[in-house]
Design a protein around this nucleic acid. Structure first.
Length: 223
DNA sequence: TGCCAGGCCGGGT
DNA sequence: ACCCGGCATGGC
């Protein structure tokens, strides 16, 4: 439920990050289809590895629905190899393509014209698509106002005392969506900024984030 | 060298 | 309802 203190705290975090880093212009992908593929490939994987894969697919001119649909799994697996988990991600991409092809007649336009909650349920019904991947697709490929919750998001909220460390996905997402306007542009920037600050300061190899904009430098607590 | 990265599933308690 | 192992490459 909405909470005045939480609203204020979330807004403060956003303001600090936006002032420190400015607009992030996410998702780093040119087309909605590319965003969808990237959302699957980046599951528990460094983005740099995903970029190599995207480059492979672009070079082969196969970064579209029909080419990936007709592509043998063996070949797809070899092209996405740099992303890691290439066998399971091949299956996941194929599963997602089946949904788009059979339920939305191969049209992303038709897919995103569907009722957003209906689409979210359909995405979650695909084996290999969990809540973060589904929301990334909805927000960054479809422009739908769903807040994307990842490991970085949870870590920051826990360290700021806004959630407990065992809060589940829905709980964290609700915290944002019930305390911020349902604005896709805002959710887009906010999540991108969280990733930005986390990569700069809060990765596990640098747990004491001196200079992190999320807290005063004289207090070297984690962000 | 070892640890980590923008998850998710399936099988076991 | 949790808990945990498996999935795999590339960068630091």
């Amino acid at each position: 439920m909405p909470d005045k203190r939480v609203r204020k705290e979330l807004k403060a975090i956003y303001e600090v990050l936006y002032k420190a880093y400015g607009p992030q212009h996410w998702w780093p992908g040119d087309t909605p289809f590319e965003v969808i593929v990237g959302a699957v490939l980046t599951q528990n994987t460094a983005w740099g590895n995903v970029e190599k894969t995207i480059a492979n697919l672009q070079r082969e001119h196969v970064l579209n629905l029909s080419r990936l649909n007709s592509m043998p799994s063996k070949r797809l697996a070899s092209l996405i190899r740099p992303s890691g988990y290439f066998n399971i991600k091949t299956r996941r991409l194929k599963n997602l393509i089946v949904l788009i092809r059979d339920h939305y007649r191969g049209s992303l336009k038709r897919m995103f014209a569907d009722d957003a909650m209906e689409l979210r349920a359909n995405l979650l019904g695909v084996n290999g698509i969990g809540p973060e991947t589904a929301d990334s697709i909805l927000l960054y490929a479809g422009g739908k106002p769903f807040f994307v919750v990842d490991a970085y998001t949870k870590r920051i909220l826990v360290r700021h005392g806004l959630i407990s460390n065992n809060a589940d996905y829905q709980e964290v997402q609700s915290l944002f969506m019930e305390n911020l306007p349902k604005d896709a542009k805002l959710y887009n920037e906010f999540h991108a900024l969280i990733v930005k600050v986390s990569k700069e300061h809060c990765i596990k190899s640098k747990p004491l984030c001196c200079g992190c904009p999320l807290h005063p430098p004289q207090l070297p607590k984690k962000c």
